[in-house]
Design a protein around this nucleic acid. Sequence first.
DNA 1: GCCGTTTTCGGCCCGACTGTTTTCAGTCG
Length: 599
Amino acid sequence: MLEMEEENPNIMFKVRSYKTASDVIRNLSSGIDEIYEDNGLKGLMQIPSIGKAIASKIEEYLMTGKIKYLEELKSKISINVDEFYDLEGIGPKTIKIIYDNLGVKDLSNLEKAASEGKLRNIRGFSEKKEEMILNKIRLLKKGRGRYLLGEVYPLVKQIETRLLNFEGVKNAVAAGSFRRMKETIGDIDFVVASNESKKIMDYFISMPEISEILGRGTSKSFVRLNNGIDADLLVIPEDSFGSALQYFTGSKEHGVAMRKVALGKGFHLNEWGIFDENQKKVAGSTEEGVYHMLDLEWIPPEIRENNGEIELAKNGGKRLSRLIQYNDLKGDLQVHSNSTDGTMSIEDMALAAKETFGLEYIAITDHTKSLKLTNGLDDSQLLDQANKISELNDRIKQGRFDTKPRLSTRSGLESQKARDEKEKKTKMSDNKHFKILSAAEVNIMNDGSLDIPNNVLDKLDIVGAAIHSSFSLPIEVQTDRLLKAMENPSIDIIFHPTGRRINKREGYPVNIEKLLENAKKTSTLLEIDAHYDRLDLKDEYVKMAVQKDVKLVIDSDAHHPIHFAFLTFGIGQARRGWAKKSDILNTLPLEELLSSIKR
DNA sequence: GCCGTTTTCGGCCCGACTGTTTTCAGTCG
């Protein structure tokens, strides 16, 4: 609204201040209301980027639920600003001009005016622009939201590989939120190093996956893929590849902060490199070089959110390099078989885990009896399964593990570990070290009790518990349910602790602080479920857990052999939450893991 | 509206692409 209202050329800076302040508030580790309760207006003003004016507006909002300044702006503007916010390519100035000329206040009237051909008569507009606006409205209505990381992963890897193999390409990386392993992806950004820009651009926009060319220049092109996702391509000379990768990986906030750091050191940072006062290029060919030139440790993409990572990188303690690595997992503690809702036998799952993903152990965690939909196991079925697993383990020890069904995986879904393992496959010919753990995914009832008695659970190697029903209970009840399950000495892990499904459902309400406290107190592990539509715990909660030294595990929740590939997403999530190898217990060899769990 | 080892005024991250107002404003990432 400010951008629409003011002629003042400095208004952009005011707008920026509000945006920065809102980002800062969103990223606070404690609530803005708590800060105000504890330290009042002074406390608010101590938050960076919040000064006197914004602090008192926050105070006003906390006390009255309203901000007078905002209400005044709203009454003055009378344009339904929120409706236009997601309309791509049309900003506040354009909306204001249309309003001034035609009195258009909302989206439906804009659509009407455009289809009636009224926009083209406005000075600075044209038939072409009118068409563009109609197009954007149509797209907005279609609701192109964000895509799940796991949904786009194979396709992105496929395009990345294709670019890498194209003649004249020195390097190609899918950057953006994809490289940062965000749980959802808005669009895909490819960065290519090459001196033959035009040739690469021509190739890119002619790829079969592309449905529409949205824009094209000498170094950047924008397209829409067949499945509706937008993709950008940046082609850049080899000696600028590092700075371009840094720039295109984001986040935007991280990039802005980095350019400020550069200015503070008398440099100038853009996607072409770092430049000194004489416009001489001093870094840019590698990403490491860019960070090092600013006296920073290289920052892993997953934590580039301007959320404290730059400060940490400054102090030179090699702390960032201690994040869990993509080949650190030794086992998977949530795996399903066709005894319940899985699709393959225990043997098949074990083989895939071992041969394709290089794991040393898995836990078979089929559902239990109260989960009727999945045909959950009862007490005796669980014990039978444990016996069967024990026999399987004996066969493995004797080297009689059946290695016949070699499973092929989609290339994009293979983990780094899998690639490493394949290279030394010959060494893996003895199967004697793999172990299958008897386990269960026990159902937590409404009162926090379990549907399997402890004397049965204690015969299993490891037990996880999870909530699968009554999501609408109030937060206190839901939290107590989990706390009680954690206090049960037979429960080692809480699976997918908040029950969310990204873009599908919110999950049940949980007091996460209490949950973490109790996990610490009872030595119960919390899971990062790596299935790409769960990624539960989410990054923010992982960070809280790490701060409180609550131990975590990363599980695939595999229902099919190919699902072990999901572990990559879980590790990405853990890294986004600043988790170190030592925070994730299934990075331990089996014996150490078993001696670390609570039973 | 925020901020300060160039400090209480005068700056504020930066470049590419688009359309069209042929030199730049608007928008985006």
